[in-house]
Structure formats: structure tokens, C-alpha cells
């Protein structure tokens, strides 16, 4: 049952990623990215990371994907006369496609060769039945307190910087 769920969700994520790669329409690619994120969240659950799966769904699907779709809609060409009939095409040049596929396939071959030939010796029991929520909370507040505070500062800086960058300084346009 767990094996079937693992292969089903990993296949969902990989097929959604391949759809992004071959799709010409960026809105469809964003919705396929939604499916890929859901598949990755299910893989987190199968690996015993329940808190991380919920965080993935809340941050990526609820925040980042909505931002990306807003960005796609705000950067459309507005000078066409028939906006509703022309899809938002993404032009892919042939040389880029060739190099992209070549580099991606060769890197995948290399990585899978390394993973298959390496012999992982795992120590410690893999306990996946207990919730990780208490452990994460205690670790964040004790031994990882400095990265936690730095993450807070980083988010504040990113918020202020993004709001300043996206400010429309030219009201005529």
C-alpha cells in the first residue's frame, strides 16, 4: 500500500514536471507546478515529515504559486487587439531546447549512476510513526535559534525590498 502510494505520487510529480517542460502555455505550466508541489508534499508525508508537508502546501501552493500566477498575468502583452483569443505563448528556441535536454539528461544519467553504485549504510532506526512536530519546535527554539531569527530578518528584508522594487514610480504609464 505504501509502495503503491510512493510510486503513484512520485509519478504524479514527475509527469507534472515533464508537462511544465513541454508546455508552451505558462498558465498551464503554473497549474502543473501545483500538481508537482502536491506530489512532493505527499512524498514528505511518506518520509515521515508531516509538519514539513503542511508547510510545503501552505507556503508553496498558498503563497508562491499565487504570486507566480499574478506575475504571469501582470506581464502579458497588452498591445494585441484580440487578447482573449491569443494564448500566452512561450517561444522556445531550438538551440536552447537541444542544450537543455542534453544537459538535463546527462546530469540525470550521472546522478542515477552515482546513486545506484553508491552503497548507503544507514545507522539508526527509521521511526516514521511518531509526529515530528514536538521535535521541530524544541530544536527550533534551542539549538537552531540563531538561524530562526536570521530567517525572520531575511523575510522582513525581502518584504520591504520587494515592496520597494515593485513600486510604480511612473504614474503616467
Amino acid at each position: 500500500m505504501e509502495i503503491a502510494a510512493f510510486y503513484g505520487f512520485s509519478g504524479l510529480a514527475i509527469i507534472a514536471a515533464l508537462f511544465i517542460l513541454f508546455s508552451r502555455n505558462l498558465i498551464y505550466a503554473a497549474f502543473a507546478l501545483f500538481l508537482a508541489f502536491l506530489g512532493v508534499a505527499a512524498l514528505y508525508v511518506l518520509a515521515g515529515a508531516d509538519f514539513l508537508a503542511v508547510t510545503q502546501i501552505m507556503v508553496y501552493v498558498g503563497g508562491i504559486l499565487v504570486l507566480l500566477i499574478f506575475g504571469i498575468m501582470l506581464t502579458q502583452k497588452a498591445d494585441k487587439e484580440a487578447i482573449s483569443t491569443t494564448p500566452n505563448r512561450v517561444v522556445v528556441s531550438m538551440a536552447r531546447q537541444f542544450w537543455g535536454f542534453l544537459i538535463g539528461a546527462s546530469l540525470f544519467g550521472f546522478l542515477s549512476y552515482v546513486i545506484v553504485t553508491s552503497n548507503f549504510k544507514m545507522t539508526g532506526e527509521s521511526n516514521v510513526s511518531r509526529s515530528t512536530l514536538k521535535t521541530i519546535g524544541v530544536e527550533l527554539m534551542t539549538s537552531h535559534l540563531l538561524p530562526f531569527e536570521i530567517a525572520a530578518i531575511l523575510l522582513l528584508v525581502a518584504l520591504v525590498g520587494a515592496a520597494y522594487l515593485a513600486l510604480n514610480r511612473n504614474p503616467a504609464s
Binding site: 512520485s10 510529480a13 514536471a17 507546478l33 506575475g71 512561450v90
Partner: peptide
């Protein structure tokens, strides 16, 4: 293996798309 496949597909997306937000989708993946 699944993570390597997703990483390589994301790299191929970031290389092939001729749209800045398309490149961003690949980086997220």
C-alpha cells in the same frame, strides 16, 4: 532517484524557457 529526476527536469526547464517566470518555475522545482 525521484529527486534527481525532478532536479534534472527543473534544470532543463530553467534552460529552455524563454520567459523569466518560466525560469523561476524551474528554479522552484
Amino acid at each position: 532517484i525521484v529527486a534527481a529526476a525532478l532536479f534534472c527536469i527543473g534544470l532543463a526547464i530553467a534552460i529552455t524557457k524563454k520567459h523569466l517566470i518560466g525560469i523561476l518555475l524551474g528554479i522552484e522545482l
